[in-house]
């Protein structure tokens, strides 16, 4: 099965944000952000677009399909 990796943790650190702050910005719980950062949960397309919009980057720049 294909593995999905992401740069959410790095991008969040660049913005000096907590997981809680990011969760509030994109309308999810902190647990979801934790799971995404650990590559344990693949977000929906909607959430991926929200994240890409928030960080001002393309989806493929944030999420990498191995």
């Amino acid at each position: 099965m294909a593995q999905m990796k992401n740069k959410i943790k790095v991008l969040r650190a660049e913005k000096n944000m907590t997981q809680e702050d990011l969760a509030k910005e994109v309308g999810v719980t902190r647990q979801t952000i934790i799971a995404i950062e650990k590559n344990k949960y693949i977000p929906s397309l909607e959430l991926a677009f929200k994240l890409s919009g928030f960080f001002g980057k393309k989806i493929e720049e944030i999420f990498i399909l191995n």
Partner: peptide, 11 residues
Amino acid sequence: KDVMVDEMMKT
């Protein structure tokens, strides 16, 4: 006011 249920919770 906080998000209680999100897509991961639903999954």
